[in-house]
């Protein structure tokens, strides 16, 4: 009895320590954004708790061009999510019809395309898009980011399709549904949690993406590039408020939709 109780305490201590470790960096971002700089980055030893309050940097943050980049980031992220679903669903369905060992092999082959550094791929792609007149457009950046996103998307969707009972597909075909109808009106609705997870993870990967964005979209940049540019220009304080403005909605989104961000989906193809 005693032993069980002490174990419970240990768990709570660990929970509190880990929570603080994960929360505190965001708290630091808040402090730099809302506490006068003399207590934060301009002090030799920044205060570990807020000692003042100012909206000065927050106001300055709005002098940074927010709307264009926000729109671009959203545009690209939704495209990346959409393409991941559009190409990922048929590919994952096709793989789910193969022997698991073959499906695993092809999924691994697709993952190999993640291994080459984005920089090396970005330059030839940039050249190609220049020729096509697509350079700096949202679709060109989305297509580039999709290279990294698609293999993981297919892997997640493959797991979702493999988990469906085999007989349901046969039943739908026997009931008169064609192949495409079976995939889109019977199987996809049943795998909707996996589809949602795929879209969300693809969306977040695009939102976060830096390397392709810096090479392929320099004229109309995305939010990560704006943040990077402002830091290198020494615009530290306004950047903190700006970073907070663009980060908080995504955190709220991730918390609200956290049921779709489970490891089960990320490790999807293992179920097969």
């Amino acid at each position: 009895m005693m032993k069980k109780k002490s174990m419970d305490y240990l768990v709570y201590v660990a929970v509190i320590v880990i929570s603080v470790l994960f929360m505190y960096p965001i708290f630091i971002l808040f402090m730099i954004a809302f506490v006068p700089a003399k207590y934060t980055v301009q002090s030799a030893y920044p205060s570990l708790y807020p000692r003042g309050f100012t909206l000065q940097y927050f106001e300055q943050a709005f002098s940074i061009n927010l709307f264009g980049p926000l729109l671009k980031s959203l545009e690209v992220a939704f495209m990346v999510g959409g393409i991941a679903i559009a190409i990922g669903i048929p590919a994952a369905y096709g793989l789910s019809k193969l022997k698991p060992s073959w499906a695993g092999g092809i999924a691994t082959l697709l993952f190999l395309s993640n291994m080459m550094p984005s920089i090396t791929i970005a330059i030839p792609i940039a050249v190609e898009f220049l020729e096509l007149g697509l350079y700096d457009t949202a679709i060109s950046l989305a297509l580039a980011q999709e290279l990294v996103v698609l293999p993981l998307s297919i892997f997640i969707l493959l797991g979702a399709f493999q988990a469906l009972p085999k007989d349901l597909e046969a039943q739908a075909r026997v009931d008169g549904a064609g192949l495409l109808r079976t995939i889109y009106t019977v199987l996809t609705p049943l795998a909707k949690a996996g589809v949602a997870a795929t879209f969300l993870i693809a969306w977040m990967m695009s939102w976060d993406e830096f390397t392709f964005a810096i090479f392929l979209s320099p004229i109309h940049p995305t939010l990560p590039i704006i943040i990077y540019e402002n830091i290198t220009r020494g615009n530290i304080l306004a950047t903190s408020a700006f970073a907070l403005i663009v980060t908080l909605p995504v955190i709220v989104l991730a918390v609200v939709l956290s049921k779709y961000l489970k490891g089960e989906y990320l490790a999807g193809g293992l179920n097969g």
């Binding site: 730099i32 830091i231 991730a254």
Partner: peptide, 23 residues
């Protein structure tokens, strides 16, 4: 606790890098 884990997960790499450059 599990919702808290979403905070770093949802923070863009650039923002995380910015925070830690100040840490």
């Amino acid at each position: 606790f599990s919702a808290l884990l979403m905070i770093p997960f949802a923070t863009a790499t650039v923002v995380a890098a910015y925070i830690f450059s100040n840490v």
